[in-house]
């Protein structure tokens, strides 16, 4: 059982969380100007790094999305933080 620190609720069990996406992929807009390749890259391609990964997770219990840096091989959690602009609300 892994544990992740939700920036809002603290350390909770893995079953309360859901992986949302790899971090750092802004949504390409407007649609009319987005090429098929760019859209496919945004929607589907991923780095799936072995080692350090920057990801967006959601703590389903509180509904907050946040950033997590962790090692996908050792499963060590390196850091979590609220999405920009959401800390301290």
């Amino acid at each position: 059982m892994q544990q992740f620190p939700c920036p809002f609720c603290g350390l909770r069990e893995e079953t309360e969380f859901h992986f949302a996406a790899e971090a750092g992929k802004p949504r390409p807009e407007p649609a009319a100007q987005v090429s098929a390749d760019r859209w496919a890259a945004y929607l589907y391609l991923s780095a799936a790094p072995k080692g350090e990964a920057h990801e967006i997770w959601v703590h389903r219990s509180c509904g907050e999305f946040f950033l997590m840096t962790r090692n996908t091989e050792t499963r060590a959690v390196l850091a979590t933080q609220a999405l920009p602009g959401r800390a301290g609300e």
Binding site: M1, Q2, E14, T15, F17, A48, E73, T74, R75
Partner: peptide, 13 residues
């Protein structure tokens, strides 16, 4: 298992 990983280990849940 719920968490994306490259480790060949399973967890209890």
């Amino acid at each position: 298992d719920r968490v994306p990983t490259h480790g060949q280990r399973g967890n209890l849940p």
